[in-house]
């Protein structure tokens, strides 16, 4: 099993090993986001009083952590799309690679791409704006993991739509998580949202992560409730999207869509 998962990972990592532009492309958007938001928060912080500094930290923390979800989702979806674009899916689906192994390989690739993308932005936030995300303490690992898992779940949904609708659904790989941003409470608390939207926000793991992040940065406390809720929702979303993906894969085998996907 590990051998087959590594086989698919190697197919993608071999490309990155040789291609500096691909590596730079991974880091480009998180760094750009960090630079733009860093200057915005520096401007808003103005006189650098305590309240403004804390708010700036919340914004930068939000940017950095949300990038983890974005890169995780895109890393998974784009790795799948690359197989489709290179017309290689046929070979993969007739190999002994099980669907769950395909998913695990795409998850591992997404995690690797996320780390390469987000770590330089974290260093930059510290170097340019004096914001050290490690101040979140051990909870940072939990926040990061919860968002990466949410990215995987959303990507499974996107991949299912690609299997169902073919290349017409490709654009979702880039846009879907941006559509969730307003409800994810990345930059503001859930309480800011209208009452009827708040349950929607709380159904997303991200909203709990960012409420927990604000509690840590603004109040210096660890909110175990939000952390537990984030992981519980992750488990639910991942199980549901995994089921949708496997169902769509079987439906594609039935329709014959795997014969010409990507063409």
């Amino acid at each position: 099993m590990m051998r087959r998962i590594w086989g698919l990972m190697y197919r993608h990592l071999a490309l990155y090993r040789r291609s500096m532009p691909r590596l730079i492309e991974l880091m480009y958007w998180p760094i750009l986001q960090m630079v733009v938001w860093g200057f915005i928060t520096a401007y808003l912080a103005g006189e650098q009083n305590n309240v403004a500094s804390a708010a700036a930290g919340v914004l930068l923390g939000g940017v950095l952590l949300w990038e983890a979800a974005l890169r995780s989702q895109m890393g998974f979806s784009l790795s799948f799309l690359e197989e489709m674009w290179s017309r290689n899916l046929g070979h993969i689906f007739v190999s002994p690679l099980r669907p769950r192994e395909l998913v695990l390989a795409l998850m591992a690739l997404a995690l690797a791409r996320t780390l390469v993308a987000v770590l330089p932005a974290m260093v930059l936030a510290w170097a340019l704006y004096g914001f050290n995300i490690l101040n979140l303490g051990p909870a940072l690992v939990g926040f990061f993991a919860a968002l990466v898992i949410m990215g995987w779940a959303v990507a499974l949904g996107v991949t299912s739509l690609i299997l169902r609708f073919g290349q017409g659904a490709e654009a979702l790989a880039w846009s879907v998580l941006f559509g969730i941003t307003p409800f994810a409470a990345v930059f503001y608390p859930v309480s800011v949202l209208p009452a009827w939207l708040q349950p929607v926000a709380y159904a997303l793991p991200a909203a709990h992560v960012f409420e927990g992040m604000r509690a840590a940065l603004l109040e210096g406390r660890f909110d175990a409730g939000h952390m537990a809720a984030a992981f519980a929702l992750d488990a639910l979303w991942l199980a549901f999207m995994g089921w949708v993906f496997l169902s769509q894969l079987e439906a594609s085998r039935d329709r014959g869509a795997l014969l010409n996907i990507g063409e």
Partner: peptide, 20 residues
């Protein structure tokens, strides 16, 4: 059905060697 174009021949064979 193509093999990944940007991978070398050896890398392509390595990928499938691992998968099988």
């Amino acid at each position: 059905i193509a093999l990944p174009h940007r991978l070398t021949v050896a890398e392509n064979l390595r990928v499938y060697g691992h998968l099988y």
